[in-house]
Write a protein that binds this DNA or RNA. Sequence first.
DNA 1: TCATAGCGATATATTTTGTCAATCGTTTGG
DNA 2: CCAAACGATTGACAAAATATATCGCTATGA
Lengths: 116, 116
Amino acid sequence: MARPTAPESPEVDHSFCPVYEAINVLQEKWTLHIIRSLLDGPKGFNELSRAVGGCNPATLAQRVEKLEHLGIVSKTIHSTMPPRTSYALTEAGQALQAVIEAIDRWGRQYLPEPVV
Amino acid sequence: MARPTAPESPEVDHSFCPVYEAINVLQEKWTLHIIRSLLDGPKGFNELSRAVGGCNPATLAQRVEKLEHLGIVSKTIHSTMPPRTSYALTEAGQALQAVIEAIDRWGRQYLPEPVV
DNA sequence: TCATAGCGATATATTTTGTCAATCGTTTGG
DNA sequence: CCAAACGATTGACAAAATATATCGCTATGA
């Protein structure tokens, strides 16, 4: 047991495998959607919420906080009143474009029909 | 509302966006770990479980069934008693190697230190 | 001027999802 | 001949996500 945040089994040693960690970060619900939305520019909270499509504010706030903590997203408060905040991708976040593009290519090729 | 399985908001139209769908498939917990494990060859149920590391059998069975249904994983029953089954990636599943590799590169570059 | 919509969130209650631990009948290794 | 391993399945439980309402405040339009 090396990484407390990662799910572990006694049989396999995943101690510190960057891919395993990366997967753990990206597999959380909405995370990839958030990153994809931010790839076309910084957004405010509600703006991001609309772009992501369907994520409720509680989850969105939590995800975005975690991504900020991981250095993937940066949060800038322009004014508290009226509330004006913007979320943008950091360099690490921008680098995830490659991942999104890979998913994009895969989706176009192998999910041509609606998934039921 | 176009895709019943996808989370939707009235403001944004995600009706049929392959990337959006692909993300929805890949973001489910353990899915990427399962695919990554199967990239180095077919595995039995418990073998897969150990390779994935930490996923409980109920969830694993459910994930693997869904992936089979999506045409990403194929299940072959060699014998029912004694139980002998193997799970392998289909062509669509193999194609996800590109995605895993992109995540791999990203992880190595941007997650060099343990993620708390 | 005065209601209204929008901002960035947060709280509570409920539903969905994932986990834990035990279990099945059979074969194999010691 | 007893214990472990195989591929799962079950039911009770915990954790995560959702819907919905709400906050204080302001800029806008009628």
